[in-house]
Every structure is written in C-alpha cells, then in structure tokens.
Amino acid sequence: MAEAKPVERPLSPHLQIYRPQMTSMSSILTRITGNGIIVGVLLLVWWLLAAVTSPDYFDFVNAIATSWFGDLVFTLSLLGVWYHYLAGIRHLIWDSAKMMDIKTAEMLGWICVIGSVVLTALTLIIIHL
C-alpha cells in the first residue's frame, strides 16, 4: 500500500549548477540582445525627434549620435540586431521540428555567434561605401 507520508521528490536542477553549453549560452544571448537593442533604438528615436525640433537641437543630438559613444552604441546594437535576427531564424527552424539534434543545434549556435559578427562587419562596410 502507498505510504501516507509525502514522497521525497528531487529538486529541479538549477541553472547555476550547469556547465555553460553552446545551446544554453546562445539562448541566453537571444534574450540579452533582444532587450539590449532598446538602447540603440532610444538613441535613434532621440536623433529622429531632434531632426524635426530645431537646427540647434539637431546639432546637439547629432554630435552625440555621431560621437565615439554613438558609434559604440549603434555598433553594439547592430551586432545585437544581427545576433537576434539569426537566433530568431534558428527558433523558426526549431519550431518546424528540424535540426534539433545536439550536434546540429550547437552548430546553429556557432552560426549565430560568428554570423552576427560577419553581418555586422558587412553592414558597416556597405553603409560606408
């Protein structure tokens, strides 16, 4: 017969006890990039609003947007956009129940990481031509 006392069930393994893996790290990066690019969006929206406010105000915001700080924010945002872009496509592939074995999933993670750097460099080259 079943015991009356509650069963001692194992606790769910916590995130912190796992060794970092390609699949988990690339998944966390999707979240970080998706939320992080809001910083670049805010700077861009401020710049757009300044363009329709006044010449003096545009000069002020444009100086920030085109300074080393603006370049840093926009370059990191670009990297974030491309990473999130590739990782999003990876999720669409997974949603169709394809490429889900561990080896292929890890390869897709590397494609996201390396691909985002390549696409960022390509974008910067193309817009500066």
């Binding site: 861009l44 947007a65 085109t66 926009f74 670009l78 974008t123 910067l124």
Partner: peptide, 9 residues
C-alpha cells in the same frame, strides 16, 4: 538598416 545606416551622420 541600410536606409538608417546611410542617413546617420
């Protein structure tokens, strides 16, 4: 991205 990137600056 191309439109914004080329207009910025």
């Amino acid at each position: 991205l191309y439109i914004v990137g080329t207009t910025l600056g």
